[in-house]
Design a protein around this nucleic acid. Structure first.
Length: 316
DNA sequence: AAACAGGTGCTAA
DNA sequence: TTAGCACCTGTT
């Protein structure tokens, strides 16, 4: 019967531009965020609990779009192997959390400029951008992102979330606030494939295991991908079983912040066909090439605005 | 109850 | 290059 020790601390992170936690955390790019009450601040509108890297946090904001994020975390949580690296458990300071949160929310993106540029042509993009005001493409941990999107194959978002949550609970390390971080490649690779299947992975068990093994062995060097052009990085990721163009592009966009990729799933294929091709059916490859060419270095943001729009507003 | 879900691997033209 | 099919498992 261990006593639970809690040392909840709080800080305010100021970003260089607007953020909407709702749009950013509910648009479907990350799988571990849930609505929650901010500790001691039930007056805040909407807050979310989740895990950034290997640190559990609650994030909130005073209005639906603002430049500031309130962050709470448990300073008594164990030593963290996270990046950015910690010198010791005592380094779990406000300035560390500030850096972690700003990196995760991609503080270097000029959101105002991106929104302005993509709205300029009017039409559906202007509507979609307005609807998603303050949405930020996150910069997630590449390995967690890779594993999560391998698990997404032929699943809906709630099912993906449950699987990711379950894997963290089974094989991850404590991240504070009673939850665990996403398990390392080592922790996955040392599991039997059958045990992964039992952990809600289904037929993706062998794919997840293959991803962990290739990352662990360096066969796919996740650190190297950062410096590769998107097309080359995509080919590298596709060496993993269960990683095709869609999964690879999601990892490049949400894990490596390569904003020139345009991941195409059924929803985006539908959106491109409907809004840009007069209803003409497109192959996924054609839709991807269209998006990359049309939106260039902002293709990733364009994709996310369209995705959030067509799923929540123009569903039929 | 049967189909569907943020795709991909495999095989065959 | 492209088409057709199977695939764990929880929802609708």
């Amino acid at each position: 019967m261990g006593e639970i020790s809690l040392d909840i601390r709080e800080t305010v992170v100021r970003l260089s531009g607007p953020v909407s936690l709702m749009a950013t955390l509910e648009c479907g790019q990350a799988f571990r965020w849930r609505q929650a009450v901010f500790p001691g601040r039930s007056d805040l509108p909407v807050s979310y609990r989740g895990v950034i890297g290997q640190l559990a946090v609650v994030v909130g904001q005073a209005s639906s779009v603002s430049d500031e994020i309130l962050v709470a975390w448990d300073a008594s949580s164990g030593p963290l192997p996270a990046s950015p690296p910690l010198a010791s458990a005592e380094s779990l300071t406000p300035s560390y959390v500030d850096r972690l949160v700003r990196g995760y929310f991609s503080d270097h993106d000029d959101i105002e400029a991106i929104e302005h540029e993509l709205s300029r042509s009017g039409g559906v993009m202007a509507d979609a951008v307005a609807y998603s005001h303050g949405l930020r493409i996150l910069t997630q941990d590449p390995w967690e992102c890779l594993a999560s999107y391998v698990l997404s194959l032929n699943k809906n978002i709630p099912a993906i979330s449950r699987t990711v949550e379950h894997l963290a609970a089974c094989f991850g390390e404590p991240a504070g606030m009673g939850v665990s971080g996403f398990p390392s490649p080592e922790a996955i690779a040392c599991q039997e494939v059958s045990s992964l299947r039992q952990s809600k992975c289904g037929f993706r068990d062998k794919y997840l295991h293959d991803a962990a093994e290739k990352v662990l062995s360096g066969d796919v060097d996740l650190g190297l991908l950062k410096s590769l052009p998107s097309a080359d990085a995509r080919q590298e990721l596709m060496k993993i079983k269960g990683v095709g163009p869609k999964v690879a592009d999601c990892v490049l966009l949400f894990g490596y912040h390569k904003l020139d990729v345009f991941p195409v799933d059924v929803w985006i294929a539908r959106a491109v066909s409907r809004y840009f091709m007069g209803g003409k059916a497109l192959s996924p490859r054609e839709a991807r090439e269209f998006g990359e060419q049309r939106f260039g270095p902002l293709a990733g943001y364009a994709q996310e605005y369209l995705f959030y729009w067509i799923r929540n507003v123009a569903r039929t």
